[in-house]
Design a protein around this nucleic acid. Structure first.
Length: 157
DNA sequence: GCCAACGTTGGC
DNA sequence: GCCAACGTTGGC
């Protein structure tokens, strides 16, 4: 089982939205980057855990934890002309974009801010601390997962 | 809202 | 297959 970080804009879909969904579960759709798509298709599996990261907002950082509950499957929004994520070049015979389902696990009492994360010299591999990162989905090492949990003053309880 | 950094596109 | 132009991302 692996650890991940998923970015989302909380004004569009944040951890509070996830917590209010039926069964606290939601398809993670709209990923339109090939590197992130490959993670969804090949490596992200049910049972994996992820940090739910809030971007482009007031307090940027890790807001909580969710769990992958369904392996990769074709992202329905790519075939929906009404969707912002519609991709006319994709087709159902060979879908280009992939979703997984994620389920709410916990919301942190305080967002672990990007600033705090960057201030820890032990966090060096994580994509978000690197300059110019653009990935909306990125791997987190087990070591950094534990460290970040500890920094947030949280656990998986 | 600015702007640097990046991925994608498309002409050649 | 190169690379300039363009659009998007995301922290500030």
């Amino acid at each position: 089982m692996n650890y991940w970080l998923f970015k989302s804009e909380p004004d569009v879909f944040g951890i509070d939205h996830l917590a209010k969904r039926p069964n606290q579960t939601e398809p993670w759709d709209g990923v339109r980057n090939y590197q992130a798509r490959n993670f969804l298709r090949d490596e992200i599996k049910a049972g994996d855990l992820l940090f739910f990261y809030h971007s482009s907002c007031k307090v940027v950082g890790i807001a909580g934890i969710a769990e992958v509950v369904k392996d990769g499957y074709p992202d329905a929004s790519q075939f929906n002309p009404e969707s912002n994520y519609f991709d006319p070049k994709s087709n159902p015979e060979s879908p280009r974009w992939i979703s997984v389902d994620v389920k709410f696990r916990k919301k942190f009492k305080h967002v672990l801010s990007l600033q705090e994360i960057k201030s820890n010299p032990a966090i060096t591999e994580l994509g978000i601390v690197k300059k110019g990162h653009r990935l909306s989905i990125m791997p987190v090492t087990e070591k950094e997962w534990s460290l970040l949990l500890e920094m947030a003053g949280e656990n998986l309880g």
